[in-house]
């Protein structure tokens, strides 16, 4: 299936009124970032129990966040950096 989530929802929005799935899209980020209110969480969770596309979008969004926080390598701070910061601060009056 080539269906792209974002496109699907743009189509839905064309009707003029916001569908339940549209509201869910708007909550996706809040949910994965832990910023949704209790009401938003329960609205969201109830909806994705019954709506497969929204359930999948949620999985995808979580995966995306996981890719960044779990796989992006951290760069190693050069050892000299802390020392030179301390040195420059000591020089500062």
């Amino acid at each position: 299936m080539e269906s792209r989530f974002t496109e699907t929802h743009q189509k839905l929005s064309d009707d003029g009124h916001e569908s339940e799935c549209d509201k869910i899209v708007k909550l996706l980020d809040l949910m994965i970032d832990g910023e949704a209110s209790v009401e938003e969480q329960s609205y969201f969770n109830t909806h994705i129990e019954e709506c497969v596309p929204c359930f999948e979008s949620h999985q995808k969004q979580k995966l995306l966040k996981g890719l960044v926080c779990g796989h992006l390598k951290r760069v190693i701070v050069p050892e000299s950096l802390a020392l030179s910061i301390k040195a420059r601060i000591q020089e500062t009056v």
């Binding site: 760069v75 950096l81 910061i85 601060i89």
Partner: peptide, 10 residues
């Protein structure tokens, strides 16, 4: 990055 961090701390 090194320069920017030093500048930030100063």
């Amino acid at each position: 990055a090194n320069d920017l961090v030093q500048e930030t701390y100063l």
